[in-house]
Design a protein around this nucleic acid. Structure first.
Lengths: 123, 123
DNA sequence: GTCGTTGCAAAGCGTTTGCAGCCTA
DNA sequence: TAGGCTGCAAACGCTTTGCAACGAC
């Protein structure tokens, strides 16, 4: 159904190579290394279709534009470095969620974001 | 330093009366009940100055426009109802954060968002 | 050759800013 | 009365959409 164009390949490859969530703009710059004429509209369109296919998932952090990462990584959360602005995956989950859910509320999902300095910026 | 204008009063009152975080637009509609000529630019300007004064704090949820609540409530998190789109405060905190922080990283803060149905929407 | 895809430019949408007149202190 | 504040409209940055040309199948 979806065609494998040069642009689409470049976008998927850039996302995979990055290893951490990328914003549309970061993705544009990265993918332009392979397809220099790439336009931002194409990035958005492909992000949308890749999401619909389930190949990537949005990583939405409070007050930040959405970033995207490859799907299928299992339950995890993110660490946002205040210095370099990169977003890292963190495995595991604090759990203990029922204890903070108000009575009568139905909990379906949760998001969890850590803020601080990554190992590179600590040094 | 800051003048207590009708607009400013209406905005602060609307925020206080709501009892839960409001978006700029929700705030505009609520505050217009008292000052019908109120403009959205004034809402944004007052939100900014009230923040600088420390009277309100932004509540930023992933993928959502910022909402605002009155400051001074102590450590808490939020529950976002998927049905009515309201945001509620939840007291307490799962804790156990150190266990998910990657080695070498310096944890300074965290955000935590619950998703599901509020008690009104469950019923 | 078909028809989905691309790049450009224009349109949207939420937020910010410039400016002349207004109103609080 | 002075200078901060307001409302309007224009500007802004990010995202989406319209359209004609392009290119994967």
């Amino acid at each position: 159904m979806y065609r494998e164009t040069r642009q689409r390949k470049a976008i998927r490859r850039a996302l995979k190579d990055a290893g951490h969530p990328l914003s549309p703009n970061e993705l544009l710059e990265a993918a332009r290394e392979h397809v220099s004429s790439l336009g931002i509209a194409t990035v958005y369109r492909n992000l949308k279709s890749l999401q619909e296919e389930g190949r990537i998932v949005p990583v939405e952090l409070p007050g930040e534009p959405a970033r995207y990462e490859v799907a299928g990584k299992g339950h995890h959360h993110h660490f946002h470095c205040r210095q370099c602005d990169k977003v890292y995956e963190v495995d595991g989950c604090p759990g203990n969620l029922g204890s903070v859910t108000p009575p009568g509320f139905h909990l379906e999902d949760h998001e969890f974001v850590l803020y601080g300095l990554c190992d590179l910026c600590v040094a």
